Amino acid sequence: MTGDRARYWQRDALPGTELLAARFVRHAFARHAHAEYAIAAILDGVEEWDVDGGTMRAGAGSLVFVNPEVPHTGRAGVPEGWAYRTIYPDVTTVRAVAAELGRSGTPWFAEPVIRDPGTHRLLVAAVHAADRGDDLAASSALHAALVALLGANAGVAAPPPAPAPRAVAVARDLLHARLTAPPTLAELAEHVGLGPHALQRAFRAATGLPPHAYLVQERVRLARSLLAAGDRPAEVAAAVGFADQAHLTRHFRRHLGVPPGAYRKNVQDRGGRAA
């Protein structure tokens, strides 16, 4: 027994937001980035992760923030692991709450870890209410938590993304276009007019990931949306370019901590009990 258990789910009453209840002891997340915000309330233990060239740690009572498209890892910081409740609101959802507060632009959480007991309780309450199907309580607590978080920790708009070098932008577009039949590194480099080593360095500098890891991340993102729509894992594996369901499962677990079948079941349930 590893002690690892996790469940992602969604509720119609919380549009644009996915929820996670989890405890991880041995699982380690591969380096990846979310299209959404990741905002976690640590319940016990310690989480450790690498981000922006440094290593962060957060213990019980902490709130953890990862902004959209910021590559990071995740692992236990102590032998007993960590437990947390996490919300993944999309950019549209967070911008809408910010607009209610008179803020323009896309919010950017400036501090990766804060301690705010009141907001921590609100976030945990939102996840627990969503877990028991109390949509009014869940939506109210979630909105209050986002208001508090934006007021306390997101006083600046997201910095404009640095324009990727043209070669990286072209390479990224080609990977998206050929998700299921990608080029080799040599072919990709030739397509953009760089040597393989130069492309690897430029791509990692612009995206935080080498081309192959970026391709896997994008396959997992597409798989996640297809599974949430109800597609079966074997069908999804073929649709996004993995060799088979086992290949999908291996990478899906490294990015999300759960196998694709369990993810599909839970997000399709739109409720039920958390792990």
Rank of each mutant, 00 (worst) to 15 (best):
F252C: 01
G257M: 08
N266T: 14
A228G: 14
S225D: 09
G257T: 09
R250Q: 06
R232Q: 13
G261P: 06
G257W: 00
L227R: 03
D269C: 14
N266R: 14
P260M: 06
G230S: 14
K265P: 00
D231T: 00
V258H: 00
F252K: 03
P259G: 15
L248S: 04
A239K: 09
R253A: 08
A239H: 12
R270F: 13
G230N: 15
G241N: 01
R224N: 06
G261Y: 05
S225E: 09
F252I: 03
H247V: 10
P260K: 00
A228T: 08
A229Y: 08
R254P: 03
K265A: 15
F242V: 02
G230Q: 13
G271R: 13
F252V: 02
G230D: 11
H255F: 06
G272T: 14
P260I: 05
R253K: 15
Q268F: 10
A239N: 09
Y263C: 09
G241P: 03
H251T: 04
V258Q: 02
Q245N: 08
A228F: 06
S225H: 10
A246C: 11
A239S: 13
V236K: 02
A239M: 11
N266K: 14
P259Q: 10
G272L: 14
G272V: 14
R250L: 07
A262R: 12
R270Y: 12
A229I: 04
A246T: 15
A237Y: 00
R254H: 14
V267H: 06
A238C: 08
L227S: 08
F242K: 03
R270N: 12
P259C: 10
A246V: 13
L256G: 04
G271M: 11
R270V: 10
A229W: 07
N266S: 15
A238E: 06
S225F: 00
E235M: 11
V240G: 11
Q245I: 09
A228V: 07
K265S: 11
N266I: 12
R270A: 10
H255N: 09
G230T: 10
A237I: 00
T249Q: 10
A238Q: 12
F242L: 05
G257Y: 07
V236L: 03
V258I: 13
V258W: 01
N266W: 14
R253T: 10
G257C: 09
L226I: 07
R270L: 13
R253H: 10
G271W: 05
L226R: 09
R232T: 13
R250T: 08
V236T: 05
F242T: 02
G230V: 13
A228D: 05
L256Y: 01
G230H: 12
V267S: 02
A234L: 13
R250N: 08
Q245H: 09
L227F: 04
R270E: 10
A238W: 05
G257S: 09
F242Q: 02
G241Y: 04
P260T: 05
Q268Y: 07
S225W: 06
A237D: 05
R250V: 01
A234Q: 08
H255W: 05
F242C: 02
P233G: 05
A243H: 15
L227N: 05
L256C: 04
